[in-house]
């Protein structure tokens, strides 16, 4: 983890703020004057991780560029819950064009700003996992390859939530969605090969790629800030639990994000020019069951006869991540 508590502060940098930390060591979210880039009154579900992640990221980005920020937004929950006519929750100049073209729209904005000599104004693009890893993937890759001056943020809630929880290429194996029902020989989503977009982004050798979760705000803000300090194509993939789509309690949003990390199912790291530069280590490793059990989308794994084999396969995925990224303290990167 790039943020190690320098001095001991009770909760150190785990909590949002802490009156004991020097102001510059507190998060943007701790600030009384924080910008609330995504303001109250939005129509996200109770406990929506995406709403939270978006405010975290946008506020941090706003701070990093002195509020000189423009955003392009893909179709999806974030867009729908934030801008139903006649109200918008955004505080920044923001545009929604389509589901699959957000990276390109952002490229256009960046190009316009460049022509106009407005170097101080920065561009972010944001979308859900569907808008990023599936339908918007072509535009995303093009934006990466050209190294356009855009920070793309993917809010990964592991399915097409806005249309009623259908499977996306980011949906984990065994998960129940409306299009991967827990029936048949392989209930829930299939064990595919996975589509790791952060890794694909790294394969473009773009200046910066990072993953983060809503459970570690300091880390998330650090990454957004770092990305904002760079130019060219940058990608941040933020893990945002969706209580509705996952069948989880609305108060478990952050806990789930934390467990995703602590099980090793979601690796948190950053990379520059295609090379991993740092990895957030697991603090208290937990078996995947602890994470899966809190979500109804996996409930079929824990029936009268638990699907031990499937659970073992999911555990193996976590273990592979742990090995691959060196997520445990003892192992090297």
């Amino acid at each position: 983890m790039p943020f190690q508590p320098v001095k001991f502060y009770q909760t150190g940098t785990f909590t949002v703020g802490n009156r004991l930390l020097a102001p510059e060591e507190r998060t943007v979210q701790a600030n009384m004057q924080r910008t609330n880039g995504l303001n109250s009154g939005h129509r996200a579900c109770q406990g929506c991780g995406e709403a939270l992640g978006a405010r975290y990221a946008i506020d941090a980005a706003m701070r990093a560029c002195n509020n000189q920020l423009v955003a392009a937004n893909a179709t999806g929950c974030l867009e729908v819950f934030s801008t139903p006519y006649p109200e918008t929750s955004w505080q920044i100049p923001w545009i929604h064009s389509l589901f699959g073209n957000t990276a390109a729209v952002a490229t256009g904005i960046a190009a316009a700003l460049k022509v106009k000599g407005r170097r101080e104004v920065r561009v972010v693009a944001q979308g859900g996992d569907g808008g990023t890893t599936d339908i918007g993937f072509g535009c995303l890759s093009g934006m990466f390859e050209r190294n356009d001056d855009v920070l793309y943020i993917c809010y990964d809630n592991e399915a097409y939530m806005n249309t009623g929880v259908q499977r996306s290429s980011a949906t984990p194996p065994a998960a129940r969605t409306a299009t991967t029902m827990p029936v048949g020989v392989e209930p829930g989503n299939v064990f595919g090969q996975g589509k790791n977009v952060p890794q694909i982004a790294m394969a473009h050798n773009i200046p910066y790629v990072a993953t983060a979760t809503v459970a570690d705000l300091h880390d998330l803000e650090y990454k957004v800030t770092k990305a904002m300090g760079m130019h060219g194509a940058r990608y941040i993939h933020i893990f945002v639990p969706c209580p509705l789509g996952w069948g989880a309690a609305s108060n478990d949003t952050i806990k789930l994000a934390r467990l995703a990390r602590e099980t090793g199912l979601f690796a948190v790291y950053e990379a520059e020019h295609g090379e991993v530069t740092s990895v957030s280590k697991i603090r208290k490793r937990v078996p995947v069951e602890e994470y899966l059990k809190l979500q109804k989308r996996f409930v079929h794994l824990f029936g009268k006869t638990p699907a031990t084999e499937t659970i073992a396969r999911i555990q193996a995925m976590a273990d592979r991540n742990i090995r691959k990224f060196g997520l445990l303290e003892e192992e090297g990167v």
């Binding site: 390109a104 490229t107 904005i109 106009k116 072509g138």
Partner: peptide, 28 residues
């Protein structure tokens, strides 16, 4: 000049880049 010429990866992107650029005030 000044003008940005962008080799996009598809027509869908071409129009999308134009949308972004136009919305940001550039003649596209």
């Amino acid at each position: 000049a000044p003008c940005e010429f962008i080799n996009v990866e598809s027509e869908f992107a071409a129009m999308s880049v134009a949308i972004g650029a136009s919305a940001a005030g550039a003649r596209s």
